[in-house]
Write a protein that binds this DNA or RNA. Structure first.
Lengths: 129, 129
DNA sequence: CAAATCGATAACAAACTTGCTATCGTGAAG
DNA sequence: CTTCACGATAGCAAGTTTGTTATCGATTTG
């Protein structure tokens, strides 16, 4: 194969994403892939086998393998367990998206109470206890 | 009942948490309760019934009720759907916890490559769009 | 070559969340 | 009183993730 015929992984991905079903699946597993990177990189950097890490996380070797493949979204419980074992924090931040503030004259701004959507920010921290 | 005999909800909670099984459950449902607050407050502030909000989220009224009760951890997929319907972002932030940096002399710092745990921050954004 | 270890994967059970329908008691409106 | 909409909840099916055991091919080690 000539060099000019080769495709980068990005190109391959972009092509695959043209398939709507694949795109949905790709989108659905966004969290799974982020977690996969965490687990894999942690494991490699610490020179652990899947079996050893599995033991440390209180799960089986196949489950670690599945997490590293990243095709299933882990449950919240699993995130919490990873936080324990991998020395990472999962901070789930909930932030309401503000509506586009309408253009209002300065006078109107000072004279009218703005019926704002009361934002309820919240951060849930899953970390080693 | 006398006022002096009354308990605040915090006191009741602290008492319940003495039960180990209850404590585990309380911890397990941390995310569920945060989501519950989001759903409930959004719904009330917009004057929606559970049925109307359910329709808007593409789910049933009992499911909205369950989310508001907060005793089940929603799946990642559900978080994504709530992000769509509630005008909120769920930012799942993964941050490795740095090891306590050992006290090292300035000279050592400049002369030795530090074998650091390579931190892999990652933020997954579940949002409308 | 033989043995051990590795990661990937299949197969099945168990647990949990969600979808759905129906129903209950409550409270408001007619 | 009757009617209506509300939220809570039961019951059951369906889908997804996890737990578990076993096995596979590949690689390393003796």
């Amino acid at each position: 194969m000539k060099l000019s015929e080769m495709k980068t992984s990005d190109e391959v991905l972009a092509e695959s994403l043209r398939d709507p079903a694949y795109a949905v699946e790709w989108n659905r597993t966004t969290v799974a892939r982020a977690v996969a990177l965490q687990v894999l990189s942690y494991r490699v950097e610490h020179g652990l086998s899947q079996r050893l890490l599995a033991k440390r996380l209180g799960m089986s070797q196949p489950q670690v393998a599945r997490l590293e493949i990243g095709e299933h979204n882990p449950t919240i419980d699993t995130l919490a367990r990873l936080a324990q074992g991998l020395n990472v924090e999962f901070a789930i931040d909930v932030r309401p998206i503000e509506w586009e503030p309408k253009l209002v004259s300065k006078r109107a701004q000072t004279h009218h109470a703005v019926a704002t959507y009361q934002a309820h920010h919240a951060t849930v921290l899953l970390a080693a206890g």
